[in-house]
């Protein structure tokens, strides 16, 4: 850990609210982004980061950071998210995702047509994936399965799932590139 960072941690322990705010401003966006990848819920992600900093301030006198402040915060967010997932069942979380898709019925006709086109393109792109890659991607997409669950289901190693998911997403990015600028419009009706 750099000398200036240990000084910063010392100052936060001593109650330097201004410095605490600077640390918050510096890392909050990327921490919320990270929490959102785990929770798949932007509001929950914001709450986790917000509560983390509230706890951090309240327990600042016993704050012990052995790595960098950034690593410390990422680990804390990761642990908080895993605890949160324990509280919410995966099924409930997935229902929340699907809730967004359910709102599509209220979208204007033009958006519905565009959505159908995108869905068709997704289907075509998935079918172009090699067989094993396609199976893995479908389990992630349709069942919200985690890497370990997919590995268990298909009797593969987690490393293979990691590798195939990397390839699948790269393939989807290339196959759907013509539709990506339209994503913003597509999701306007889902928020």
């Amino acid at each position: 850990m750099q000398a200036t960072e240990s000084q910063n941690i010392f100052n936060i322990r001593e109650g330097d609210i201004r410095l605490f705010e600077q640390v918050f401003q510096m890392y909050c966006k990327e921490l919320v982004r990270y929490a959102n990848t785990i929770l798949k819920n932007a509001d929950e992600a914001e709450d986790i980061v917000q509560q983390l900093f509230v706890n951090l301030w309240q327990k600042r006198e016993s704050l012990q950071v052995n790595t960098s402040m950034r690593s410390y915060l990422y680990r804390a967010v990761h642990n908080c998210c895993l605890n949160r997932i324990k509280q919410l069942s995966v099924k409930q979380t997935y229902t929340t995702y699907m809730g967004y898709a359910g709102e599509q019925h209220s979208a204007p006709a033009s958006a519905a047509i565009q959505q159908k086109e995108v869905e068709k393109a997704i289907g075509v792109a998935i079918e172009k994936l090699p067989e094993q890659c396609r199976k893995i991607f479908k389990l992630s997409r349709q069942h919200g399965m985690r890497y370990q669950q997919i590995a268990d289901e298909l009797n593969l190693s987690v490393k293979t799932v990691e590798n195939q998911m990397g390839k699948a997403l790269k393939h989807m990015r290339e196959q759907l590139k013509d539709y990506l600028p339209g994503v913003i419009l597509f999701f306007l009706y889902h928020n």
């Binding site: 918050f24 966006k29 699907m98 995108v118 999701f187 306007l188």
Partner: peptide
Amino acid sequence: QAYRITHMLPKAKEVDPYELF
């Protein structure tokens, strides 16, 4: 973006650090 449309996830929400603080 590709992941979000294939997994039916909404657009990422823009975080305002000042408002959150």
